[in-house]
Computed example of a mutant assay.
Amino acid sequence: MNIDIIAGARPNFMKIAPIISAIKEKSEAGFNISYRLIHTGQHYDKKMSGDFFEQLGIPEPNINLEAGGGTQAEQTAAIMVRYEKVLMESKPDLVLVVGDVTSTMACAIVAQKLHVKVAHVEAGIRSGDWTMPEEINRMVTDSITNYFFTTTEIANDSLRKTGVTDDRIFFVGNTMIDTLLKNRTKFIKPSIWDELGLQAGSYIVMTLHRPANVDEEGKLKELLQEIIDNSENLPLIFPVHPRTAKILQGLGVSSERLHMVEPLGYLEFNYLVEKAKAVVTDSGGITEETTVMGVPCMTLRDNTERPETITIGTNELLGTNPKAIKPAFGKLFKGEWKKGGIPELWDGKTGERIINALLKLES
């Protein structure tokens, strides 16, 4: 069984690492399985991609489509045109896509049009928000997927409602958590730890990048000011996404406690998250990691495609109204934040389950 594994953006790399590891183990054990790693080039900043390959032990891609940059449509088109050429020369038995980025949707479409089956890892999650490009990517990908690998029973139910039969749904858990658990003992103290004199439980980590939060300068300024005003005297560590960095220039928000730093590698960033008092974010993936590490998480979004991080985990959905920040910090500093638990099958063995399922399908 020959599998094309598609990766194009930072979250993909965390999700494919356990799958590649499981394929290698099965291959070494004598199973007929191999893979070709296709990097679409959707993220081309070294801190957003290259570091992940090095730190997570992912081999160099077999093929790099180098399709970064441009608008949503331009990027989708570039990936599709270049991946089609790859498949015209050599088809795998299966194309495996992960998550909800442009690369996932684009390569799934190309594969199906050339009659190659598609497996979608992290299938079935939904926010219900069609203003998010990721939601469109999820819906399109799942509408043409053959095999669905899911993170929760919520995702299973979502797929069933669209007519997907149970024989095509595989509840396997979360590969992102496989990567987290495997690397938790390898986290690296970033240089800013000593430079700023940080102490465990005595700082806040922030990440903001979604258009709803950062595209309007006035809104972003108000969000940052509310965080600064209500975080007591704790340092605020803000690894700045390239998209956000451009908008922050000239915004005029400043505090001696607000430390904007370059994007961090996976091991450095999670070192900070694990020891933080809390995380303020608009990222979906980070809410999963904070749930497993038991770190309070405030999500500045009006919806989430990962409701289990709220119903089971340590995450709370604050919305995008800056006025919601003060009461949330009040709860945190009073020691009233929920403890949370870990969702079913988020146990570090998801990659293995995925490959076992694919081998059974092939037999």
Rank of each mutant, 00 (worst) to 15 (best):
H115S: 14
P92F: 11
R82K: 14
M80T: 04
K113N: 12
M88K: 10
E89W: 10
I79E: 03
V95E: 00
K85W: 12
H120G: 02
A119G: 08
I109Y: 05
E66M: 07
Q112V: 15
V101C: 14
A67T: 00
A119D: 03
E89H: 11
A77L: 11
V101K: 05
G69D: 04
D93H: 11
V116K: 02
L96K: 06
M105H: 11
N62P: 00
T71F: 04
N62H: 10
R82W: 13
V116L: 06
G69Q: 02
M105Y: 10
D93V: 03
I63H: 02
M80Q: 06
E89P: 04
A108Y: 11
M88Q: 14
V95Y: 03
V118E: 01
G69M: 08
G70W: 06
V98G: 00
V81G: 09
Q75F: 05
K91H: 09
A78C: 15
E74V: 01
T104A: 09
L96G: 01
K91M: 02
L96F: 07
Y83G: 09
V118H: 01
E84I: 03
T76K: 07
A67P: 00
V95T: 06
V86H: 10
L87E: 12
G99I: 05
V81Y: 13
S90K: 10
V121D: 00
T71A: 03
H115Q: 15
V97F: 10
L114N: 13
V97T: 08
D100V: 12
G70R: 04
D100A: 15
T76V: 01
K85F: 11
E74H: 08
P61A: 08
M80C: 06
A111N: 03
G68C: 06
E89S: 14
V101G: 07
S103A: 14
V118K: 00
S90L: 14
E84T: 09
K117S: 13
V98R: 00
H115E: 15
G70N: 04
A77K: 11
T71Y: 09
A78M: 13
P92E: 11
V101M: 13
P61N: 04
L114R: 15
Q112L: 15
R82D: 12
I109F: 13
I109G: 05
E66Q: 08
H115K: 15
S103W: 07
A73V: 13
Q72T: 08
P92W: 06
I79Q: 03
D100H: 08
V118G: 00
D100Y: 12
Q72G: 02
V121C: 00
H120I: 01
L96I: 09
T76N: 04
H115Y: 15
P92S: 09
I109M: 14
Q112K: 15
T104H: 14
